[in-house]
Design a binder for these strands. Structure first.
Length: 942
RNA sequence: GCGGGUGUGGUGAAAUUGGUAGACACGCCAGACUUAGGAUCUGGUGCUUCGGCGUGGGGGUUCGAGUCCCUCCACCCGCACCA
C-alpha cells in the first residue's frame, strides 16, 4: 500500500479541528509550559521554506512537552502594523487594513497546511483595535508612572505629585534628564534655578507648569530631543532602526534633528536590564550584544571651570563637565574637546575664532549620520577659549571636533593624548602637547592605553599602576568638589513617536497644550485622504479633521503613531487571555502561564524587540500587573535557510547555453535559472525553453550523457534569484510530515544552512518505510500485542536517544535516530507488536503528527496519539551482554575482540595481553602499559 | 578595532563527559527487478603510491585529541570615534 500522505494529512487536520485538539485552558492539575514563536509580520510575499523552520522546531517541542504531561501554551499571531502595507497604501490608496487582512489570510493557509499545534483561538493581531486598545493602555500606564531610583521601580505619577506637594523635590530620587529643568522658564524660580524646588514653589505653580515639571519625570514622556530623522521615510527612527547611518528599512540616509517626540525612559531600567541577563537561558552572543548595547561604564564626571580673560575661573561659574573612565590620567590632560552641538560652544568661542567655529559647527550639522560616522579623518577647530585644570590650575585650550558625540556622556571630553588613541591622533595632527604620564613609554611616539602602566608626572599617584590609581583619583575628585563617581550608559531613551499612519494611535489628547491620557475610549485610526505626511510635514493623522476621528477629545489629538515595537513588546501576555475586554491580561492567567519557557525566533531582534519587551515586562511587574519581570526565560535563535541558486551559462552574443563542466571553454554569461526547472542540477530543457520567450530558441551544448548540468551557489532566497522554495509546493509533492521532518533533519537548528531539495526524498522514503513497517506488522489483521525482544531493544534504544536529544534541543539528530530505528526494525528478526510500535508512533508524533496518528491507530493505540504518554526507556533493554572492544596499540586500532560486558577490567587486560593478535602486533616490543576503559576501548602502550 | 560564532568526505551533517572520526541522509558507482516509476530492492562509496594519511595551519598536554591548552589563518554575524 502506498503512503497516501494527502489523504492522511487532510483527514487528521480535519479531525483535530473538529475536536479542538489544540485548544488549551489553565489547568492547575498539570505543570504548564509556554512555547512561543516570534510572531511574523504578514508580508505580501507569503512564506518561503525558511520561515517555518523555527515554527516547526517549536511545534515539535510543544508536542513533546504535551506528551510529557505538560499543559502547553503554543499560540500564533501577527505583528500586523508595519511599513510595507502603508507604502502599498500610499501607492494604491488601498487601506492598509485591507492589505493586511489579505496577507494574514494567506499566512494562515500556509501555516495550517503544515499541521502546527497552535491554539488558533488565541490568535492576536497587533493592528486590531481589540488588541491595540491594550497597547494604548500600557502606554497610558507608562505615561502615568515615574521611576524611583532609590526603590528601583516604577511608581504612579500621582505619588510623585504628592511628594512634590509635601516636600518639593528634596529627597525625591526620580529618573530624569540630568538637567531636566533647562528649557523650562518659570518666573518664580528665579534666574539661578538649579533644579530644586520646595513645596511652596510647587504650590505656587499653575496647572500647566506642574504638568511640565511632571512630564520631565514620566516614563513615557514628551521631550525635545535629538532624534534620527529619515527624510525619505518622513519619520523618526529609534537607534536600533538605524544601521550605518541608514534606515534599516529601505536604506535611506538619516540625519540628526531636534524634535518634540514621545520618549521611553528605558535608561531608567539600564542596570536591571543588564543584571537580569545572567539568569536567562539565552546564547552568550545575544546577551553580550545586549550588554554592549546598554554599555554600562564606570568612571567619574569632572568639572573644569571656564577661564575668563585673566585665566581665572569665570565669574559666571560656567563649567565644562566631562565623563571619563580614566580619572587616573587627569595629570595628562592637555586640551579639551566639545561636540560641535555642545551648549557652551558659543560662550567659549572667542571673536578671533568665531568664523572658523561657526563654519565647523554648520558643516557638522549638515553631515548625515552616515557621513559623520564614515569619516574617520581628523578634524576640529580651536574655540579660542580655555578651561582651568582642577589640579594644576593650568589653562587648557578647548577645541570642538565631531569625534566627540553630543549624545554620549556630557558631550565633552578631557583629552589625554598619552593615554587615549583618538586624543593622541588629534594632538599629533594639530601639534598639541602630549604630557608624559607613563613611566618608560615615549608617548610622543606611541599611545599607551594599558591600564597596567606605571604613572609618572601625576603627583601623589606616581609609581602606581594606572588601574590602582583610578579609585584614588575618583576619591580625590569628590573630595575637591570638582566631580563625582559616575556611571554612564550607552543606551539612550527610545524615541516612541513615528510620523506614520499604520501604527497604534496614542491615547493622548491635548488641552491648552497639556498632554492628557484618554482613559474612557480606544482611540482608533481616523479616516485620512492620503497616507502621507501633510504639506507642513505633520504626520498623516494630522490630515484627519475633527469629525474624521472616531474618538476626538480635548483641543487636539496626538497625531503621531507608535513604533512597530509597541505591539510586539507585550503580545506574549495577550496570548494568555486574548479575549479579555476589561483587562490586558487577567492576573490569575499570567500567574498561571508565567514566563515564556522557550522562545524561538531569528537572531535579528537582539537589540530591538528583545530589549523593549524586557523593559515593558519589568515595568508591568513594577506596577503590579504581572508577577514576573523577565518575559523570555529560554530562547533559541534559529539559523537562516539560504537558497541554492541554479545557473545556466549562455555563450555571449548567442542563444547557445553550455553545460557547467564545459563553460570554461567559452566566453559565457552566468544567468539565474528558476530552480523549479532544475532537478539534481539537471536542467529541464523543454521547460527552460518554455520558461521565457527569449529562451524559446535556446540551443544547448550538453554533457556526454545528453544532460545539461547547471552551476549552483548558495545565496539568500529572493524572487530575483529564482531560488525561492515555497512550502506549498513541497507539501503538495511530499506532504507536511515530510517537510517538517526534512527541515529538522537539514542540520542544527541554530546554524545557517543552504536549502537543498534533493535530500527531501530520503526523508520521504523514511516515512514511507515507517508506514510499511506498520502495515506489514498488522498484515490485514490486528497487530499482535507482544514484539520480539530484538524489536523492543531497538525501540527502547530509540526512546532513550530521542528523549535525550529533544531535551538538548538537538532536533536534527532525532530524525536520524528514528531512521535508524525504522531501518533496524525493518530487518529485525522476530515479530513486531504493539508494545514496540505504539511507543515508536509516539516518538514520531512531534515530527510527523499526521502519520503518527495513523500509525498509532493501526498499532492499536486508543484515542489520539497527541495525548499518549511519552514512553520511558527501559534499561533492561538497553544493556548489552557483550561488548566489542577495539584494541589499539599506541592509539591506533588494530583489531577487535568481543567480550562479556561484565568482564572486570583486570581480566580484560590479562586476556588482551595474552591474545594471539596482540603478540603478532607487538613483534619484539614489550608492553609498557595497558589501559582498559570498561565498555569502550583497550589501549596497549608498547 | 571590539564582541560572538563557524571551519570534519563530492554535499547536508554525526560523534553529550577526551575513548573505533564520518552515524543518518543526499549524490555517485555497480547489480537486481522490468520498462519510464520523480519507483523499489541489494551491495559499494574519506584519501591513498596499500606503507600509511586524514576533522583549517602550526605547536602542546595525554596511553589516547574533532573534543582540552597556546598560536596563527579563513569565512560569517553583530557593534563600532562610547571618552
Amino acid at each position: 500500500m502506498d503512503y497516501d500522505f494527502r489523504a492522511i494529512e487532510a483527514k487528521w487536520q480535519r479531525t483535530w479541528k473538529d475536536s479542538d485538539a489544540y485548544k488549551v485552558t489553565e489547568d492547575t492539575s498539570k505543570p504548564k509550559y509556554y512555547v512561543l514563536d516570534m510572531f511574523p509580520y504578514p508580508s505580501g510575499a507569503g512564506l518561503h521554506v525558511g520561515h517555518p523552520l523555527g515554527y516547526i522546531a517549536s511545534d515539535v517541542y510543544a508536542r513533546y512537552k504535551r506528551h510529557k504531561g505538560f499543559n502547553v501554551l503554543h499560540p500564533m499571531g501577527y505583528d500586523s502594523f508595519g511599513l510595507p502595507a502603508e507604502q502599498y497604501a500610499i501607492q494604491t490608496g488601498q487601506h492598509p487594513a485591507v492589505t493586511t487582512e489579505q496577507n494574514i489570510a494567506r499566512y494562515r493557509d500556509q501555516l495550517e497546511q503544515l499541521g502546527f499545534c497552535f491554539d488558533w483561538s488565541r490568535e492576536v493581531r497587533t493592528s486590531d483595535p481589540s488588541y491595540y486598545k491594550w497597547t494604548q493602555w500600557i502606554f497610558g500606564e507608562l505615561f502615568e508612572s515615574w521611576y524611583d531610583t532609590e526603590a528601583q521601580k516604577a511608581r504612579p505619577i500621582a505619588e510623585l505629585a504628592e511628594a512634590f506637594a509635601d516636600n518639593g523635590n528634596f529627597n525625591v530620587h526620580a529618573a530624569c534628564d540630568e538637567h531636566w529643568w533647562k528649557g523650562l522658564s518659570f518666573p518664580h524660580f528665579g534666574e539661578h534655578f538649579d533644579g530644586t524646588f520646595t513645596a511652596t514653589d510647587w504650590d505656587s505653580m499653575s496647572e500647566q507648569e506642574r504638568a511640565e515639571v511632571l512630564m520631565a519625570f514620566r516614563i513615557a514622556y514628551l521631550a525635545d530631543s535629538e532624534v534620527n530623522w529619515c527624510p525619505a521615510l518622513g519619520t523618526v527612527l529609534a537607534n536600533d532602526e538605524v544601521k550605518d547611518g541608514l534606515s534599516e528599512r529601505g536604506g535611506h540616509p538619516v540625519v540628526k534633528k531636534t524634535m518634540r517626540q514621545w520618549m521611553m525612559r528605558i535608561t531608567a531600567y539600564a542596570d536591571r536590564l543588564l543584571d537580569s541577563l545572567d539568569g536567562l537561558d539565552w546564547t552568550d552572543s545575544v546577551k553580550d550584544a545586549q550588554r554592549h548595547w546598554i554599555g554600562r561604564s564606570e568612571g567619574a564626571s569632572v568639572r573644569f571651570a571656564v577661564a575668563d580673560d585673566q585665566g581665572k575661573p569665570d565669574a559666571s561659574g560656567a563649567e565644562v563637565e566631562v565623563f571619563t573612565t580614566r580619572p587616573d590620567t587627569l595629570h595628562g590632560v592637555s586640551f579639551m574637546v566639545l561636540a560641535p552641538e555642545h551648549g557652551l560652544v558659543t560662550q567659549l568661542t572667542t571673536d578671533a575664532q568665531g568664523q572658523d567655529v561657526e563654519a565647523y559647527v554648520t558643516a557638522a550639522g549638515l553631515k548625515s549620520e552616515r557621513d559623520r560616522q564614515g569619516d574617520k579623518s581628523i578634524s576640529g577647530v580651536f574655540t579660542g577659549g580655555h578651561v582651568v585644570h582642577p589640579i594644576s590650575g593650568a589653562l587648557i585650550p578647548v577645541w570642538i571636533a565631531d569625534y566627540v558625540l553630543a549624545g554620549y556622556g556630557t558631550g565633552a571630553i578631557m583629552a589625554v593624548p598619552a593615554g587615549d588613541e583618538r586624543d593622541w591622533k588629534f594632538a599629533t595632527h594639530f601639534g598639541l602637547d602630549i604630557p608624559a604620564i607613563f613611566e618608560g613609554v615615549d608617548t610622543q611616539e606611541e599611545v599607551c592605553t594599558d591600564k597596567g602602566a606605571i604613572l609618572c608626572g601625576s603627583g601623589e599617584w606616581d609609581g602606581m599602576k594606572a588601574a590602582d590609581a583610578i579609585p584614588l583619583a575618583i576619591d580625590w575628585v569628590e573630595k575637591q568638589g570638582v566631580g563625582s563617581r559616575t556611571i554612564n550608559h550607552r543606551i539612550r531613551d527610545a524615541v516612541f513617536s513615528r510620523q506614520r499612519y499604520w501604527g497604534e494611535p496614542f491615547p493622548i489628547k491635548y488641552e491648552q497644550g497639556v498632554a492628557k491620557r484618554i482613559t474612557d475610549a480606544t482611540v482608533t485610526l481616523p479616516k485620512v485622504d492620503a497616507y502621507l505626511p501633510t504639506e507642513d510635514g505633520e504626520p498623516p493623522l494630522a490630515r484627519a479633521a475633527k469629525e474624521d476621528w472616531p474618538v476626538f477629545q480635548g483641543d487636539a489629538m496626538e497625531t503621531n503613531t507608535m513604533p512597530g515595537w509597541a505591539g510586539s513588546s507585550w503580545y506574549f501576555l495577550r496570548y494568555m487571555d486574548p479575549h479579555n475586554e476589561s483587562e490586558f491580561c487577567a492576573r490569575h492567567k499570567s500567574d498561571y502561564w508565567g514566563q515564556v519557557d522557550l522562545y524561538v525566533g531569528g537572531a535579528e531582534h537582539t537589540t530591538g524587540h528583545l530589549l523593549y519587551a524586557r523593559f515593558w515586562t519589568k515595568f508591568l511587574h513594577d506596577r503590579g500587573h504581572i508577577g514576573f519581570d523577565e518575559p523570555f526565560k529560554g530562547m533559541i535563535n534559529q539559523g537562516m535557510i539560504l537558497g541554492r541558486s541554479s545557473f545556466v551559462y549562455r555563450i555571449q552574443g548567442t542563444d547557445t547555453f553550455v553545460t557547467a563542466s564545459q563553460r570554461k571553454a567559452h566566453a559565457t554569461q552566468r544567468l539565474h535559472v528558476d530552480i523549479n526547472l532544475v532537478d539534481n542540477d539537471k536542467l529541464d530543457l523543454e521547460g527552460f525553453r518554455a520558461w521565457r520567450p527569449e529562451y524559446a530558441q535556446a540551443e544547448f551544448i550538453l554533457e556526454d550523457d545528453g544532460s545539461y548540468l547547471c552551476g549552483h551557489e548558495v545565496e539568500k532566497m529572493s524572487k530575483s534569484k529564482y531560488n525561492v522554495q515555497t512550502p506549498d509546493d513541497l507539501v503538495e509533492r511530499y506532504g507536511a510530515d515530510t517537510l517538517r521532518c526534512y527541515e529538522m533533519f537539514l542540520g542544527p537548528l541554530t546554524q545557517h544552512k543552504p536549502w537543498d531539495t534533493q535530500g527531501i526524498s530520503g526523508v520521504h522514503n523514511f516515512l514511507r518505510k515507517t508506514q510499511r513497517l506498520y502495515t506489514q506488522a498488522t498484515d490485514g489483521g490486528p497487530m499482535p500485542a507482544e514484539a520480539s525482544e530484538d524489536a523492543l531493544r531497538i525501540v527502547h534504544k530509540a526512546i532513550a536517544k530521542v528523549t535525550d536529544d529533544l531535551d538538548r534541543h538537538a532536533f536534527n539528530t532525532v530524525v536520524s535516530a528514528l531512521m535508524i530505528a525504522v531501518n533496524e526494525l525493518s530487518s529485525a528478526s522476530g515479530d513486531m507488536g504493539q508494545n514496540a510500535l505504539q511507543p515508536l508512533a509516539v516518538l514520531l508524533s512531534p515530527y510527523a503528527p499526521h502519520l503518527a496518528e495513523e500509525l498509532w491507530a493501526s498499532a492499536g493505540g486508543s484515542g489520539s496519539v497527541l495525548d499518549a504518554a511519552w514512553p520511558v526507556a527501559d534499561n533492561a533493554f538497553l544493556v548489552e551482554d557483550s561488548v566489542t572492544y577495539p584494541v589499539s596499540f599506541n592509539g591506533k586500532v588494530r583489531f577487535k575482540v568481543e567480550l562479556a560486558a561484565s568482564m572486570p577490567p583486570p581480566e580484560v587486560e590479562a586476556l588482551i595481553r595474552a591474545h594471539d593478535k596482540t603478540l603478532e602486533q607487538l613483534g619484539d616490543k614489550a608492553i609498557r602499559k595497558v589501559i582498559v576503559v570498561p565498555g569502550r576501548i583497550v589501549n596497549v602502550v608498547a
